[in-house]
Design a protein around this nucleic acid. Structure first.
Lengths: 188, 188, 188, 188
DNA sequence: AATGAATGAGCCTTCATTCAT
DNA sequence: AATGAATGAAGGCTCATTCAT
C-alpha cells in the first residue's frame, strides 16, 4: 500500500557505485554514491543495509552482467565454443572498463564474503565445463578444473590491459592471446 | 621529511606495513604501523613523507625482494632459464604470502604512481628479455614483449593461489603450470 | 495527527514502547516500537504526533496503571490505609519491573513536560491527603505535604530494588521498610 | 619527550560534559562537549576512548567529588556523625545541581558498568558502616546494610529537590528530613 | 631525530518525521 | 487510515598529518 521499492533506484545506486568506485576506489563515500544516484543518503541504506552489503551485491551484479554479456552457449566444436567465451569475455572487459576495474577490486577485497564469491561463480559453471573438456588431454589434465578457469580469467584480464593500451590492435591481440591460452591448456 | 637516521627503523616500518596491510588491507592506519614497527606515530613521517610515499616505497621494496629471490640468471638452454625464473618466482610467492598479497593490492591501487611502476619493472628487464626470446616463434610473436611478462605474472599468480590451496601438490602444480605457460608462448 | 481509529493499536504501541524502552532505554527507535506493536512505521505517528508525545502519554499511562493497581481507599485506621497504599504500590513495582523502570526513566527525562507531571500527580491526591494526615504530628509537620509523598515514593522505590535482589524476603522487606517509613513521618 | 597529556584538558572535558549533560541530557554530542572544553573533537578521544568511557569516568569523578565534599569522619556520637554525613551530602547536592542531576542520570543509565558502580561505592564504605551501626536496633535491623545506605541517598535526594524549590527554608528542611531519616532507621 | 598529543575533515550509519501510494 | 519508502540532519569515531616538547 505504501510506495514500493524502486528497482530503478536500486540500479541507479549500483551504477553510481560502479562509477565512483572506478574513479575513487572502494573508499568512495556512500554519501557521494547516493548523491550521484540521485537519492538521499539514507535511501541508499533502505536498498543496501550497509556499505558491505552494497559491495557484495555489486559484485554479484557485475559478475552477472559479465555472464550475460557472454551469452548462451554457441554451436560448434569445442575450440569454437571456448573461443566464443574468450571473445565475449574480453569484449565485455574492453567495453566496460569501469565495471571490469571495480570487479577486479571487489574480487581482491576482503569485504566480499566467501558465500558471495561462490554464488558469483555459479553462473560460470557451463563455461567451466567447457574448459574442463578442453584441458582433458593437456598438460593441466591432472589439475583441479577450476584452475583452468582461473587461468583463463587471468590471461584474459592481461589481454584486456594490453588491448586498452593499443585499442587499434584489439582483434589481433585478442586472437593471439586466445591462441596462447588454447595452446596452454590443450597441448600435452 | 629530513634524512632519516636509522635504516633499521625504515625497514621495521616497511615490515610492519607489510604485515598490517596483509592483515587489514591498505587502509591499515599509519598509527598502528608505527606502533607495530616500534616507533612513534610521528616518526613514520620522518622516514616517509606521507602514507602514499610509504605505499610507493613499499611497492619497490617488495618488487625488489621478489627480484632478489629470483637470483641471477642461470646457465642452460632458454627453456631452463625461463623455468628457473618461473620456479623461483612461484617459490617466493608461496613462501611470502603476505608480501605477495600486499604487492598484488599495491599493484592495483591507484596510489602507486606510474613512475613507481616503471621503476619496479626495471629489475625484471633480463627476465623480460628471456621471455622475448621464448616468444619469438610463438603465437604471440607480434605482441608487445611486455605482454608475455604480464602473462607470466598472471599465470604464476594463479598458480600460487592453487598451490596455497593444496600445498602438498606444490611441485606438480608448479611444473604443470609452467608447461602450460611454455606451451602458451612458444607454440606457433 | 488525525483521530486514530483503533484503541487496540494505541495500546499495542504503548505496550511495545514500554517493552522496548525497558530493554533499550528511551532512545529505542520509533520504527522498532511500531514494528513490535505490529503496525507500520508511519502509523505510530497517527496515534502520537511525535515521539515526545508518545513519551508523555506513556508517562500518564503508566502512572495511571500504577494508580489503578493501588485500588480504591480501604477502611481502617490511618496507619492501615497508608500501609495499604504502600503495599499495593510496592507490589505493582515488583510485579511490573519494566513499567517501573520506564516510569523512572520518564520521570527523570526532560522530555516529560511539567504539565504532564502535574496531570500524572492528580490521581494520587487522595493518597497525598492520607500522608498529610500521617505527618501531622511528626517531624515533617511543617514541610510541604508533597514532600512526604515524594519521600514515600523514594523509599518505596528503594524497597523494590531490594526486593528484586532478594525476592524470597519480599514480604519482610516490604514490612520493615514500611515501618521505617511510618517511623519517619509520624514520630515527633 | 612529546607533549604530555594535560590533566587540565581532561578536567575541562569532564566539566564540559557535566555542563552539557545537565543541559541536554546524556545525548549531548561529543563534538559540542569538545568544543565547550576548548579542544578539538578528536582530542576528546585521546582522553576517553569512547563516549561510554567518558560516561563511566565522569560517574566516578562525580562520585569522588561528592565523597570529597563530605569530608573525613567527624568526632562525636553516632547521631552526630550520621548527621554530618547527611548535611554535607545534602549541601553538595544543593550547591552542585548540575553535578547532582548528571550523577542521577548516569546512575540510571545502562551505559554505566557494574564494575564502575562498584568502584564508585568503595569510597562510601565508612559512611555505610556508620549507618549499619545506626540501624542496629531499628526496624531495619535484619535488612541488608546497603539498604539503609540506599534509603539515605533516596531520602536525601528528595530533600534536595525540595530545598531547591524553596532555598530559603534549606536548613529547616534539611534538619527535618534528617530527623525523619533518623527516625526511620533507629526506631524499633 | 623522536615522541605522541592535537587537529578536524570525513565516514558510515541511525532515526524522527514526511509523504506518495 | 495504513503503509513503508524517502529524507537529511546528526552522531560517534577514525586517521593522516602537524607540531610542541
Amino acid at each position: 500500500m505504501a510506495r514500493p521499492r524502486s528497482e530503478d533506484k536500486r540500479q541507479a545506486i549500483l551504477q553510481a557505485a560502479t562509477r565512483l568506485f572506478a574513479e575513487e576506489g572502494l573508499n568512495a563515500p556512500t554519501a557521494r554514491i547516493a548523491r550521484t544516484a540521485g537519492v538521499a543518503e539514507g535511501t541508499l541504506f533502505t536498498y543496501f543495509a550497509s556499505k558491505d552489503e552494497l559491495l557484495n551485491k555489486l559484485y554479484l551484479e557485475l559478475k552477472g552482467q559479465l555472464r550475460s554479456a557472454m551469452g548462451p552457449p554457441v554451436r560448434g566444436g569445442l575450440r569454437e565454443q571456448v573461443r566464443h567465451a574468450w571473445t565475449t569475455y574480453v569484449a565485455w572487459g574492453v567495453d566496460h572498463p569501469r565495471e571490469r576495474q571495480v570487479l577486479a577490486w571487489l574480487g581482491l577485497s576482503d569485504r566480499i564474503l566467501d558465500a558471495t564469491r561462490t554464488e558469483g561463480f555459479q553462473a560460470f559453471c557451463d563455461v567451466s565445463r567447457l574448459l574442463e573438456a578442453g584441458m582433458a588431454k593437456g598438460v593441466l589434465r591432472d589439475q583441479p578444473p577450476a584452475f583452468v578457469g582461473s587461468l583463463m580469467a587471468a590471461m584474459a584480464d592481461t589481454t584486456m590491459d594490453y588491448i586498452n593500451r593499443d585499442p587499434a590492435a584489439a582483434e589481433a591481440t585478442r586472437e593471439a592471446a586466445f591462441a596462447a591460452f588454447w595452446n596452454a591448456i590443450t597441448h600435452g
